[in-house]
Design a protein around this nucleic acid. Structure first.
Length: 546
RNA sequence: AGGGGUAUAGCCAAGUUGGUAAGGCAACGGAUUUUGAUUCCGUCAUUGCGUAGGUUCGAGUCCUGCUACCCCUGCCA
C-alpha cells in the first residue's frame, strides 16, 4: 500500500505529536457506526480515514458500535457492517459496543448532577422545543432548572428504575440557554426509552444521547483523535464540556476533528431513501447493484482495492464537494485491468457468415493473453459480432464493418464485408469474405483500419448480461425521489462469449474486449446461462456524432 | 443576539513559521497496439489562489471589509 496522501488531519496529528500532546505509538482512532442500516460508499471514506491513521503512524484503530438508541438498532445491521468492513479489507484492533459502557455513563451522569451541572426536566418534548428559542433568540430556562441536587439525584435514579413513562422526564445538562450554539442550550443527555436493546436487553430503560455518550465512549477507549464528519463541528464544544466536567477525563482527552463527507455525483447514499427503495420493492434489496451500499457496489463488481485507491486520491478536506463518477470508474478500471482476464464476448449479437470459409469446418486459434500465455479459441464460418460493429450507412470516421470495408477479427483474419440481409424477424446477418493469408501471428503485412471482436457461433457460451441505468439522487427541490427512479432500469440481454468464459468461477471478473468489465453476479446466477453484471465501461474516445 | 464552517483550473485536492502555485480525474496532442482499450510520452493556473483594499522587497499564505455556498432550533446519530 502506498504512503497515504497528505491531508489536514495528518497535519493536525503531526502537530499534536510534535507538541507532545500525544505519543505517536499511542495514537488510537475509531470507526463508530450506529448499527441501524447497511454501510454505503460514504462510510468507506470514513473507514478509510480512521484506518489510514493507523496505517500511516501505527497505533490502533477500533470498531465501535454506537448503539445508544435501541429503537433504531439491530444486531443484523451490526453483523452486516462487520462483514462489509472486512470486505473493504480492514481489520480492527478491538471491537467495542457503546452499550457496554451504559453503567459507567450512568455513574458519570450522577457525577454531573452532584456537581450541579445536570438536572431532571419534567417538561414535555414540545415544551422543551418551544423554550429552546431560535437561531436568533435565546431560549428560556426550564422551570425545573434549579431543582436541588438531592431531588435531581433521586429523580434520575427513579428514571433508571423505570418509575416513569417514555417522554415524562429527561436529564439535561445545565449549560447556557442563551448560547448562540443551539447544542449548548441545556442539551438532553438521557431520555426514557422502554425498548429492548439488541445487546443489553431490558436492563436499561434510560438511554444516553449521542452528545453525552460519544465523548465518554472515546475517552474510555483512550481514543486520541476522534474523526467525524463536518456536521459535528457545532457539537465539539459540548463534547469538550462533557469531558472537562468529568473528573476521570480532565487529562488526556480525545480530540475531535471533522472532515467533509464523500459525495459522489448522482449516487444515492441517504439511508432514508435507500430504505424507502428497499421497502417499496423498487430495488431488490440492500445489495441491489444500482445502490451505492457497500454490498451493492460489491455486487456490481467494484473491488475493495479500487475503493481504497479512490478514497486515497480523492483526499480528505473540509469543503463540501461532489466527486464525478468518472473518478470512481477510473480506479475501478485501474484495478480490474490488473486482475481480470480478457476474453471476447459479443454483448448484442448479430450473425456474420464468412462465405469463402469451408462449410462444416472449424479451427482452433491460439490467442495471446496479457500474461504471455495463450488460450484456444474456436473459429469457423459462422460467427457472432457486435451489432454496433456493423453499419449500413457508416458515420464519418467509422473504422469498423460496412459494405466494402476491411476489418481484422481479433486474433484471426482480415475480412471484407460483402453484404447484409435482414430476416423476417428483423434479425441482421452480415456476409463477408476472409483472406486466409492474413492469419494473426503469421507476419502478414496487410493492415486493416479497424479491429473487432467476435465469437464462433456454434461453440459460444450463452450468457445473460445485465446492464443498468443508475438511480438518481433526488436533491432538486420539490422533486420526490420516487419520481426519478426508473423501476425498469435493469436491462438484460442474451449475449455470447468465447468458451473460456463458460468455465469461469463464481465472482470471477472478465474484461470483455471493447465493451468493458463484467462480473459474474454472485446472487442472481442461475440456470444454464451465466449472468454477468456490467461494471465499468472501457474508455472510448470515438463518438458517432463527431 | 445568531453561531459554526468552506472558498486554489471543468472536477477533487496539496500548499503548517510570507519567498515566487504538488498530485489525481477529465480533456487534448503524439508513439506502440491482434480492443477506437491498455501502456508510454507530452500539453493543460503568467498581471493567477471567491471579491475589494491594506501591510511587505515579496502574500494563496498576515490584516480589514464584502460576497457565495454548507451545517445548526431531534427526548436521532
Amino acid at each position: 500500500m502506498s504512503e497515504p496522501k497528505s491531508n489536514f488531519i495528518y497535519s493536525e496529528i503531526e502537530n499534536d505529536i510534535k507538541n507532545g500532546v500525544y505519543e505517536q505509538a499511542k495514537l488510537i482512532t475509531r470507526f463508530p457506526p450506529e448499527p441501524n442500516g447497511y454501510l454505503h460508499i460514504g462510510h468507506a471514506k470514513a473507514i478509510y480515514i480512521s484506518f489510514s491513521v493507523r496505517e500511516k503512524y501505527g497505533g490502533q484503530t477500533n470498531l465501535r458500535f454506537d448503539d445508544t438508541n435501541p429503537a433504531k438498532e439491530e444486531q443484523e445491521f451490526a453483523e452486516s457492517q462487520i462483514e462489509d468492513i472486512k470486505w473493504l479489507g480492514y481489520d480492527w484492533d478491538n471491537l467495542f459496543y457503546a452499550s457496554s459502557y451504559f453503567g459507567k455513563m450512568y455513574e458519570y451522569a450522577h457525577e454531573l448532577i452532584a456537581k450541579g451541572l445536570a438536572y431532571i426536566d419534567d417538561q414535555s418534548p414540545d415544551e422543551i422545543k418551544l423554550t429552546r428559542g431560535s437561531l436568533t433568540k435565546p431560549g428560556v430556562p426550564s422551570p425545573y432548572r434549579d431543582r436541588s441536587i438531592e431531588e435531581n439525584a433521586e429523580l434520575f435514579t427513579a428514571m433508571k428504575d423505570g418509575k416513569f413513562k417514555a417522554g415524562e422526564r429527561v436529564l439535561r445538562a445545565k449549560i447556557d440557554m442563551s448560547s448562540p450554539n443551539m447544542n449548548m442550550r441545556d442539551p438532553v443527555m438521557y431520555r426514557i426509552l422502554h425498548e429492548t436493546h439488541h445487546m443489553t436487553g431490558d436492563e436499561w430503560c434510560i438511554y444516553p444521547m449521542y452528545d453525552y455518550a460519544h465523548p465518554i465512549e472515546d475517552a474510555i477507549e483512550n481514543i486520541t483523535h476522534s474523526l467525524c464528519s463536518l456536521e459535528y463541528e457545532d457539537h465539539r464544544p459540548l463534547y469538550e464540556w462533557v469531558l472537562n466536567n468529568l473528573d476521570d477525563y480532565k487529562e488526556n482527552q480525545p480530540r475531535q476533528i471533522e472532515f467533509a463527507r464523500l459525495a459522489i455525483e448522482n449516487a444515492l447514499t441517504s439511508k432514508r431513501y435507500i430504505k424507502m427503495l428497499v421497502d417499496q420493492g423498487i430495488v431488490d434489496g440492500w445489495d441491489d447493484p444500482r445502490l451505492f451500499t457497500l454490498r451493492g457496489i460489491r455486487r456490481r463488481g467494484i473491488t475493495p482495492a479500487a475503493l481504497r485507491r479512490f478514497c486515497e486520491e480523492v483526499g480528505v478536506a473540509k469543503s463540501n464537494s461532489i466527486v464525478p463518477r468518472a473518478q470512481l470508474d477510473y480506479f475501478v478500471r485501474e484495478d480490474l485491468q490488473k486482475i481480470s482476464p480478457k476474453a471476447m464476448a459479443v454483448i448484442e449479437p448479430i450473425r456474420l457468415v464468412i462465405e469463402n470459409y469451408p462449410e462444416g469446418e472449424h479451427e482452433i486459434l491460439k490467442i495471446a493473453n496479457d500474461d504471455g500465455t495463450e488460450r484456444d479459441v474456436p473459429f469457423g464460418r459462422e460467427l457472432y459480432i457486435e451489432a454496433e460493429d456493423f453499419e449500413i450507412e457508416p458515420p464519418p470516421k467509422y473504422r469498423r464493418l460496412y459494405i466494402g470495408n476491411e476489418v481484422r477479427l481479433i486474433g484471426a483474419y482480415i475480412i471484407k464485408c460483402t453484404g447484409y440481409s435482414i430476416d423476417e424477424n428483423g434479425g441482421m446477418s452480415v456476409q463477408a469474405v476472409y483472406d486466409p493469408e492474413t492469419k494473426s501471428g503469421t507476419g502478414s503485412a496487410k493492415k486493416a483500419k479497424g479491429t473487432i471482436h467476435w465469437v464462433h457461433a456454434p461453440s459460444a457460451v450463452a450468457i445473460t448480461t445485465r446492464g443498468f441505468t443508475d438511480l438518481y439522487n433526488a436533491s432538486a427541490p420539490g422533486e420526490g425521489i420516487l419520481d426519478k427512479i426508473n423501476k425498469d432500469s435493469i436491462i438484460e440481454k442474451t449475449s455470447y462469449a468465447e468458451p473460456a468464459v463458460g468455465a469461469t468461477e463464481p465472482s470471477g471478473r472478465w474484461q470483455f474486449l471493447r465493451k468493458g468489465f463484467y462480473v459474474l453476479d454472485s446472487k442472481l446466477s442461475s440456470g444454464e446461462n451465466l449472468v454477468f453484471n456490467m461494471t465499468v465501461s472501457l474508455k472510448s474516445s470515438w463518438k458517432p456524432e463527431a
